[in-house]
Design a protein around this nucleic acid. Sequence first.
DNA 1: CCGACAACCTGTGAGC
DNA 2: TGCTCACAGGTTGTCG
Length: 281
Amino acid sequence: MPELPEVEITRRGIAAPLTGRCVRAVIARVPRLRYPLPDDLSAQLVGQPLRDILRRGKYLLLAFDKGHLLLHLGMSGSLRVLQAGCAPVAPQKHDHFDLVFEGATLRLRDPRRFGAVLWLPASTTANGLNLDAHPLLASLGIEPLSAEFTSAWLYAATRKRAVAIKPLLMDSHLIVGVGNIYASESLFRAGIDPRTPACRISLRRYVRLVEAIRATLETAIAAGGSSLRDFTHADGNPGYFQQQYFVYGRVGEACRICKQPIRTLRQAQRATFYCGRCQRR
DNA sequence: CCGACAACCTGTGAGC
DNA sequence: TGCTCACAGGTTGTCG
């Protein structure tokens, strides 16, 4: 499920009720997700107050004095907060991991188990601040909502890339957080055919693409922000939202701009959706 | 370095 | 109803 907007919405949704609370217990029900779960999490976390929750790409980083707990939601992961005051909620089949705080529990559900829970001790994160020292974070690309993400940067970064622009947008070593849905949506907004080789796109068109990526992500965050309260509902779904997509999942339906049917194709084994009239090479 | 592909895992919906 | 298949919002590792 989660691309950058969903992860950011999750971050905000769980930070509000959990920041400042102390960890009481760690409950791991399944020994491995994408990687084996660390076996000493209780020793590291119990008694520690949660200082902050950061996001880098699609990774969430729960900051404690002794290090960071890294969470990734993979394809199917979600987090929610169970308030201690409410009736206890029995863990379901795919509820693999609980972080029990004083007064509330953070619960990770992930049916496909492509997600991750890792412990990054402060000692290996170079004075506790430089998270980029961890191999999973070290090779991550630019944050698309940062000031550094500009058309000039993207143009320069793509001069020698013959690959089609759509799979390139999804390459987290170049840009983080843009997944299969928002890559298609951004290219539609920018009027660019998803098959266009990245090196053949002009600076002018990259100006439009960078604006489109920002608008797409920010619109999605804004749409999800209205459902933040769901993160603390006892049995609600954790704040993901129905959004009006321009092209994603709309094969055969009329383009919202020109009424031509939306088309689909496969790129890098992923479905791409686009409008053949509104988007050009 | 670049690009293409398989792999990880479970659930769901379509078609027979 | 039950089977099989294709596909699902991510990332890594391997190969040429």
